[in-house]
Nucleic acid binder design. Structure first.
Lengths: 365, 365
DNA sequence: CCGGCGTTCCTGAACGTTTTGAAAAGCGTC
DNA sequence: GACGCTTTTCAAAACGTTCAGGAACGCCGG
């Protein structure tokens, strides 16, 4: 019967709580809270007493409790198909940088290109009450249930590198049409006449955009669109290899590959078939990576602003979290054509696109 | 005055709570909770009523509230120097896979190789009450405050790819000594006599291990250790480039490079200097990646089980979270020597290490 | 001495769950 | 109809915060 209302001593194993600090320093919980959030008017005396107690108990505010009451977790969920795909790390890095800068953390999920996993991941993030979600949708159609889940998300939600016409959500993407268009124009400018395409899965929005850019550039250059010179892959190495075999058997003199992984596959096919680039055909790839510095020939490529893609997505998301109720936005970031050797030497090419070609840099292990 | 204790209707904008469900289905909160966690004895009648209400209100349990009371967040924090470094994505993937399998999520932080950021990240994760922390420490010494923070961490804590003698924490690492040893033995077996090393920062445990393996293998092969053939880099491309220039000026006939990024730099230096591999020198690198398939010559390399590194670290961590109080464990995973062409053709080499050399595979964008 | 105003501190009610201990209900037995 | 034993349901106390609404105090002008 002797226990007064709030007097249990701090249990040994557990982290100190705000009430432990309050007891230790002989003030109320309110005052401790005020000190922590350094609210204005706390007397110097008490403030110091409290700060001492905090240090002494090694107290750390419990952000879970804070989240519960504030209805904000300062956490954003990010779902990518596969972080091990070299495209995503830099995007995630961009996102994390921007998030950290504004006091947010990143909860990372891999969907493994499975729509079911993607759906589960969204549900989970929603249950964990993240403040917003970033999604790079897996390849493949919406299942009705997935669509329902996404439409039903009632927190800020930004698509990254994907967009869907009927969807009422924000999206941050690269200008894939433009990138492909420039790539193919460059091939044409360097004298190629029969230009082939190794495309990504046409169900993914960016693959379709790249295909459109390809087609329009052909038209602009007054080249004919030959259907047998277009092969659809799935953005993986193996499919680039197979597509390469199929495509090269038609002897195109130029190839535009819609992503890096398929380029790797293609180059293996090229070697097997005993062909030479740029002598036998010109090549423009997508995405730039540090290791391209040792590929021979040096690849001309369309670099996407991967880091920026992630950071702008987060910034948009946080703006929404902050209460911005504006209409859904579609933000397109410009790609950059980096001319190197795989279409023939740079001097063969009209000057307008020449620039220094910095090798992208990357940090330590 | 008319408001009874628990009767506010669900506010329109907000997610439904358990009490909304209780009210909707006319039962107590307890019963709803029992249904959610499908505890045994809830009458069939009520169970259905509750489930209907859950569907109707699109109710999702608030895991923040659950975490608060259960003192578990089902979240683990992971700190890496830089996810954009190609080594880490696969490790993170391994971690995420293992975590997901056991119902955990991953909160990802980049320390950017800054000890201060690393410290901040740990503090933050602690405040967010993650159930455990995975850390790949940034290069550089412990500051006293960082050391204090790490030692003071009172939740499960596993080091990944790093270990420190005096530290009383678990660690999961690759057997770097073994990897380097095998690499250098292979160089010696293929007839190289003056073998050089491009090392990582010797303050990082694995760099030191690799250096030890290098030295011992030389001794085993009865080769002399020539100090000018050892150059310390920082695991980045640029340093590999500089180290390559420095090292090659001494004309070694074999080089072992302690990581992939520095190999990229080295190969650029090699080309600039007009040298040829494997004719002028044999090369063994560390880490394998899909794009190595297009490097020429094909690189012989020591592959580390990156995915496994991540997944075993998480499994160990979760075991600790589960209450395992055993002594700190140091788990070493075996590397695998993948013999390709950069030391001369495989047939010149004694058979014991020959094996199929699968190109590692990777998923779509 | 009173009223008004600042400053400084506190009490107590949220936030959305889980869980303990106990009450109610159903049912068989004497 | 009293008693025990299950089965089903509940009310209320946690978990660690934030914050609205006051209270206590000192100071000033009247």
């Amino acid at each position: 019967m002797s226990s007064s209302k709030r007097s249990k001593p701090q249990k040994p194993g557990k982290a100190a709580s705000i009430s432990d600090v309050a007891r230790e320093s002989g003030v109320s919980i309110f005052t401790v809270s005020a000190v922590i959030n350094n609210k204005s008017h706390v007397g110097k005396n008490l403030r110091e007493r409290v700060e001492d107690a905090i240090r002494k108990l090694n107290y750390r505010p419990n952000l879970i409790a804070r989240s519960l009451i504030k209805q904000k977790t300062q956490t954003i969920g990010m779902i990518v198909p596969d972080i091990a795909n070299p495209f995503f790390p830099m995007v995630v890095r961009g996102a994390e940088d921007a998030a950290q800068k504004q006091g947010y953390n990143l909860l990372l999920c891999n969907s493994d290109d499975s729509l079911a996993k993607e759906e589960t991941a969204i549900e989970l993030l929603l249950s964990k009450r993240v403040d917003g979600i970033l999604l790079t949708k897996a390849a493949g159609d919406f299942s009705p249930s997935l669509r329902q889940v996404i439409e039903g998300v009632n927190i800020p939600f930004v698509l990254v590198m994907r967009t869907y016409p009927a969807l009422t959500k924000d999206a941050v993407v690269s200008d894939d049409y433009q990138g492909a268009y420039e790539a193919v124009c460059h091939l044409a400018r360097s004298g190629r006449r029969r230009i082939g395409l190794i495309s990504g899965p046409l169900k993914i929005s960016n693959a379709k955009e790249r295909w459109r850019g390809f087609r329009d550039a052909l038209e602009k250059a007054k080249l004919t669109y030959e259907p047998e010179l277009v092969v659809e892959g799935d953005y993986r190495i193996e499919s680039g290899f197979r597509a390469g075999h199929a495509l090269l058997s038609h002897r195109p003199d130029g190839i535009y590959v819609a992503n890096h992984l398929m380029t790797i596959g293609l180059l293996q096919a090229v070697e097997e078939m005993g062909l030479k680039c740029p002598e036998d055909f010109g090549l423009v790839s997508f995405d730039d990576y540090p290791w391209l510095g040792v590929f021979r020939p040096r690849l001309t490529t369309v670099e996407l602003p991967k880091h920026q893609l992630g950071s702008e997505a987060v910034e948009l998301l946080i703006q929404r979290i902050g209460g911005d109720q504006g209409k859904p936005v579609l933000k397109k970031l410009s790609p950059e054509l980096r001319i190197r050797e795989s279409c023939g030497f740079a001097q063969f090419v009209s000057g307008e696109h020449r620039r220094a070609n910095p090798e992208p840099s990357i940090d330590s292990p």
